[in-house]
Design a binder for these strands. Structure first.
Lengths: 222, 222
DNA sequence: CGGAGTTTGTGAAATCGTTCACACGGGAAG
DNA sequence: CTTCCCGTGTGAACGATTTCACAAACTCCG
């Protein structure tokens, strides 16, 4: 199979969610056009994305909602369950644990770890926070598929290393820092700081060009 | 100024953080090469990104750490303060509020809103949760620059609309759904669901190709 | 001061992702 | 059965981003 770009995969997630909604609405068929509108993209993009994986539609008709949904579900690997370990029982870690949505999509948070002795032993939902030193033991028992790093910046790389050593195949990193992991481990980063700063840039730009435009007597371009 | 790509802006955030670290380490100069290594990218990328905004380095020498840091700070608009309103006092909202890092970078969370009567009046750090109905009044008093959407999926678009109406110029959305906002409002989305699913895809692929490779007696390609 | 060595800044080339545009397949109606 | 219409699937064109590669600028050292 051809190499699939990250943007395509991310859009598949979006399509999947739209299809769930559409299914609830009771529609049986959907065209690439309508699917695209709901995501604010072009219909060609939808068709191209899907075409990397096969032909799921019927010409002149569109896509059968339930069928396409199942196909994407299988493409994304959401038809199986993933064992997730969260490291860091701070704000983000606990927020993740209390969010119930993940289990529904196949992600089972089966363990939480923290370094801080004050947090170890704490009960969070169905789980008890364990010392991060126990990670290797817990994993050798039965490995985790995905490790979530919700620790402070300073611990992130170290935790990543021990997650890798423990055999995870994917890491979701919430620490605002570039992590280095072997190429056989998939890494995704959710960096709120970057998003905030990117907003700050956009706002400064808008303001700047408005001022510049005013100086030159032209209307603002936005 | 030429249009700057989102990836360039995001990398500037990364450079900024690396420069902060490097400054603490006490180095006075840094080359694009060393800066690149720490982010796992190429030195040409670093130089190209910076070149959109000016010439900050000295040939044969590199970049003066403090100076470059200030330049990027100013480019990203981090040399001023932004008034941030958080809507949604659930898991993510409270996690954001308790995270102290944003104030340091110029983002002041000055108000929290929620729809749920059970949460209104709750004290979170220095702030009291207010009813989301009071958003227009609070904003007309003094507008917010940035609105953060940390509500359930179902309320997200509605909240976005009222944030826009209240005059925010940027929105950071944590709800896993495409939001529609006027083009003069900057929108960034942090979608953990997508990142989880993208990991699921990566893990399925790796597994799949390993199996396929095994069937054909070839070593896995990863 | 001059030559060797280093690193920037940037056009040009290469790569990657998106959009266009249309042939093709299939349904519906008469 | 034929015609008309609709919407997919996909090469090809386009556009954006990344990487290459090198001249120019500067430092360092003898």
């Amino acid at each position: 199979m051809a190499r699939i770009s990250g943007s395509t995969v991310r859009r598949l997630s979006h399509y999947y969610r739209v299809l769930e909604e559409v299914e609830v609405e009771g529609r049986r068929l959907i065209s690439s056009q309508r699917l695209a509108e709901r995501e604010g993209i072009t219909s060609a993009q939808v068709r191209k994305d899907l075409s990397y994986f096969g032909s799921f539609g019927r010409r002149g008709l569109g896509y059968e909602v339930g069928h396409l949904r199942n196909e994407i579900r299988s493409i994304l690997g959401l038809d199986r369950r993933w064992r997730v370990a969260v490291v860091g029982a701070g704000n983000i870690g606990t927020a993740l644990l209390s969010y119930q949505g993940f289990a529904a999509q196949g992600f089972d948070v089966v363990a939480v770890f923290d370094r801080d002795a004050g947090r170890v032993g704490l009960r969070l939902g169905a789980l008890t926070v364990r010392d991060v030193k126990d990670l290797p033991a817990a994993a050798s028992d039965r490995p985790f598929d995905i490790g979530v790093i919700a620790t402070p910046l300073s611990a992130a790389q170290e935790v990543a290393d021990s997650l890798v050593a423990s055999g995870v195949r994917g890491i979701l990193n919430f620490a605002p820092r570039k992590l280095f992991v072997p190429s056989h481990v998939a890494l995704r980063t959710v960096d709120m700081t970057v998003e905030f700063e990117s907003l700050s840039f956009a706002l400064s730009q808008a303001q700047g060009s408005r001022r510049r435009a005013a100086r030159f007597g032209r209307p603002p371009i936005e």
